[in-house]
Simulated scan of single mutants.
Amino acid sequence: MEEKRYSPSGTLALGILAIFLPVIGLITGIIAIIFANRSLKTTEDTEAIKALYLGGRVCAIIGLCYQGLFVLYLIFIIALAISMPY
């Protein structure tokens, strides 16, 4: 059975969206990493196409780190707001 190949430009776009979209970037980042990993395992394309997959994966990882810090910041702000006396 043939593995499904994903679009390299789509993977890159999802990775870039992971950087710029708050909270939704978590979902797009995870999807971009999954697409890139599956496609890199099965593809025998040129180096330029592999570079697009790698670029998407790197952007997704950066986006996930950024989104994780953003979520921690929100939790910190909510905890401060709850603990402050009125």
Rank of each mutant, 00 (worst) to 15 (best):
R5C: 04
Y6T: 02
S7L: 06
S7C: 09
S7I: 03
P8M: 14
P8G: 09
S9E: 14
G10K: 13
G10N: 08
T11N: 07
T11Q: 11
L12K: 09
A13H: 11
A13F: 09
L14Y: 11
L14G: 06
L14E: 11
G15A: 00
I16V: 03
I16E: 04
I16T: 03
L17V: 03
L17E: 08
I19H: 01
I19N: 01
I19L: 02
F20M: 02
F20E: 10
F20D: 01
F20V: 02
F20A: 00
L21Y: 02
L21V: 04
L21M: 02
P22M: 08
P22Y: 10
P22I: 05
P22E: 06
P22L: 09
P22W: 12
P22D: 10
V23Q: 06
V23H: 10
G25M: 01
G25Q: 05
I27S: 08
T28M: 05
T28N: 06
G29Y: 05
G29W: 14
I31E: 10
A32H: 07
I33Q: 00
I34M: 09
I34L: 15
A36P: 00
A36N: 04
A36M: 01
A36R: 07
N37I: 13
N37V: 12
R38C: 02
S39H: 13
L40S: 04
K41G: 01
K41F: 09
K41Y: 04
T42R: 06
T43M: 15
T43V: 08
T43W: 10
T43L: 11
E44L: 09
E44G: 08
E44Y: 13
E44T: 08
D45N: 08
D45H: 11
D45T: 04
T46G: 11
A48I: 14
A48L: 12
A48M: 11
I49K: 13
I49F: 09
I49P: 02
I49H: 02
A51C: 01
A51I: 02
A51F: 08
L52E: 00
Y53C: 02
L54K: 01
L54Q: 07
G55N: 01
G56V: 00
G56H: 00
R57E: 04
R57I: 00
R57H: 00
V58G: 01
V58T: 08
C59I: 00
C59G: 00
A60T: 03
I61L: 06
I61W: 12
G63W: 14
G63T: 09
G63F: 15
C65K: 02
C65D: 11
C65P: 06
C65Y: 14
C65H: 05
Y66E: 04
G68C: 10
G68S: 12
L69R: 06
L69W: 12
L69M: 12
V71A: 11
V71R: 05
L72N: 05
L72H: 04
L72F: 15
L72T: 06
Y73Q: 12
L74I: 09
I75H: 12
I75M: 15
I77S: 06
I77R: 03
I77E: 05
I77W: 03
I78Q: 13
I78R: 10
A79Y: 12
A79W: 14
L80A: 13
A81M: 15
A81R: 15
I82M: 14
I82R: 13
S83Y: 11
S83I: 12
S83K: 14
M84D: 12
